[in-house]
């Protein structure tokens, strides 16, 4: 979990790979360790299921939330608050949750000069089970598009392969192979595998799962019914 400790971390990826759920989980985990944590919702594309929808549970754990002015309201207006600049000056752990694909990530390009010469992690979240045409090749292609618009280079891959509540050990195993393949294609290290907390006991039965930290998460983002 120290992959993001005390740093600026940018979570990017294809639409619906689980960026927001991961960002919320990481923020809570680090807050529990007593770190000062800021989470920045940079999504100006998605109308629902965004980080700022979970503002209440985040703020209860003393996590600061910075979000687009009209995010999660009825105004479909892509405007950014001045406080987004402050995010780059915050102490502690700062997590940027980008929108999906190149379109959703474009907003980060606006701020990329603020990261010149600074240490940051840009973590690319991948999910083998997202979309019917998903392959390591298409996943590697999307990353190139994201890097082009953010004007930043990804530093690692996070394997979040899952089928939500239908995930089994088999999915985890196949998803891991997919992530290893994507890691080879992109030349980026596989830094972590995200596992739903109640499936943690299953992964002991998967001997192939060797590279990357194991990070258990709860499902927070999404509808409750």
């Amino acid at each position: 979990m120290n992959i993001i400790s005390g740093k600026i971390s940018i979570i990017c990826g294809h639409y619906g790979t689980g960026k927001t759920n991961l960002a919320i989980n990481l923020a809570r985990d680090h807050a529990k360790l007593g770190e000062k944590v800021t989470i920045v919702d940079m999504d100006i594309v998605n109308p629902y299921f965004r980080t700022s929808d979970y503002r209440k549970i985040l703020e209860e754990e003393q996590i600061e939330v910075i979000a687009p002015v009209f995010g999660a309201t009825n105004l479909d207006l892509p405007s950014l608050p001045a406080s987004m600049y402050m995010a780059f000056e915050k102490e502690g752990t700062v997590i940027f949750d980008l929108g999906g694909d190149d379109v959703g990530s474009t907003v980060m390009g606006r701020f990329s000069e603020r990261l010149q010469g600074r240490e940051y992690e840009m973590l690319y979240v991948v999910n083998k089970y997202r979309d019917i045409d998903c392959s390591p090749q298409s996943t590697a292609e999307i990353l190139k598009e994201i890097e082009a618009v953010t004007k930043l280079k990804a530093t690692g891959i996070i394997n979040n392969s899952n089928l939500m509540y239908e995930t089994t050990a088999e999915h985890i195993e196949k998803g891991y192979s997919f992530a290893v393949e994507t890691s080879k294609l992109t030349g980026l290290p596989l830094v972590a595998n995200i596992i739903r907390r109640d499936l943690m006991s299953d992964i002991k039965r998967i001997p192939t799962l060797k590279v990357g930290e194991i990070i258990p998460v709860d499902i927070i983002a999404g509808p409750s019914f």
Partner: peptide, 16 residues
């Protein structure tokens, strides 16, 4: 049936 994947409802409408 094909292997299950995650899709948004809007995407599933289009693919179907």
């Amino acid at each position: 049936m094909s292997e299950k994947v995650l899709m948004k409802g809007n995407e599933a409408l289009a693919e179907a």
